[in-house]
Simulated scan of single mutants.
Amino acid sequence: MQRKQHLPQKTCIQCLRPFTWRKKWTRCWDEVRYCSERCCRSARQAKHPRRHEYEQHD
């Protein structure tokens, strides 16, 4: 059994906080870029603004 201090770490590309490996990421650890779904969603929203932000107000 591994101790938690020996788990690999990465830095979230959205919030820049460190996060550690989780068992659910066993098969896809190399592809993990965000620490949480919240950071993933906020990154997507930053790339694709909502439609009402495009509309011009006269």
Score class of each variant (00 low, 15 high):
1 M>D: 14
2 Q>D: 15
2 Q>Y: 13
2 Q>R: 11
3 R>C: 14
3 R>K: 13
3 R>W: 09
3 R>F: 10
4 K>T: 05
5 Q>A: 12
5 Q>N: 09
5 Q>P: 02
6 H>D: 15
6 H>P: 04
7 L>C: 14
7 L>A: 13
8 P>C: 12
8 P>N: 14
8 P>Q: 12
8 P>K: 14
9 Q>P: 00
9 Q>N: 10
10 K>E: 12
10 K>M: 14
10 K>G: 01
11 T>N: 03
11 T>D: 02
12 C>W: 04
12 C>Q: 02
12 C>G: 09
13 I>H: 01
13 I>L: 03
13 I>K: 11
13 I>A: 03
13 I>D: 01
14 Q>A: 02
15 C>N: 03
15 C>A: 12
15 C>K: 06
15 C>L: 12
16 L>C: 08
16 L>P: 00
17 R>L: 03
17 R>S: 06
17 R>D: 02
18 P>W: 07
19 F>H: 06
19 F>C: 07
19 F>I: 06
20 T>W: 04
20 T>A: 14
21 W>H: 05
21 W>K: 00
21 W>P: 06
21 W>R: 04
22 R>E: 09
22 R>G: 02
23 K>T: 11
23 K>P: 09
23 K>Y: 11
23 K>E: 10
24 K>T: 15
24 K>W: 11
25 W>A: 02
26 T>M: 00
26 T>V: 04
27 R>E: 00
27 R>A: 00
27 R>V: 00
27 R>W: 00
28 C>E: 11
28 C>Y: 09
28 C>N: 13
28 C>D: 11
28 C>V: 12
29 W>N: 15
29 W>E: 06
30 D>Q: 09
31 E>C: 07
31 E>G: 00
31 E>L: 06
32 V>C: 05
33 R>G: 04
33 R>C: 03
33 R>E: 04
33 R>I: 06
33 R>L: 03
34 Y>F: 11
34 Y>R: 03
34 Y>E: 01
34 Y>V: 01
35 C>F: 03
35 C>G: 04
36 S>N: 14
36 S>W: 05
36 S>L: 08
36 S>A: 13
37 E>S: 13
37 E>F: 07
37 E>D: 10
39 C>F: 05
39 C>S: 01
39 C>T: 04
39 C>A: 01
40 C>Y: 02
40 C>R: 04
40 C>L: 03
41 R>C: 08
41 R>M: 05
41 R>N: 10
42 S>Y: 04
42 S>L: 08
42 S>P: 04
42 S>E: 12
43 A>F: 07
43 A>H: 00
43 A>W: 01
44 R>G: 01
45 Q>F: 00
45 Q>A: 02
46 A>S: 04
46 A>M: 06
46 A>R: 10
46 A>N: 07
46 A>Q: 06
47 K>L: 05
47 K>W: 03
48 H>L: 06
48 H>F: 09
48 H>P: 03
49 P>M: 05
49 P>L: 05
49 P>Y: 00
50 R>A: 12
50 R>E: 14
51 R>I: 07
51 R>P: 09
52 H>W: 08
52 H>M: 09
54 Y>E: 07
54 Y>A: 08
54 Y>C: 09
55 E>A: 10
55 E>Y: 13
56 Q>D: 15
56 Q>E: 15
56 Q>K: 12
57 H>V: 15
57 H>W: 11
58 D>G: 11
58 D>E: 14
58 D>M: 14
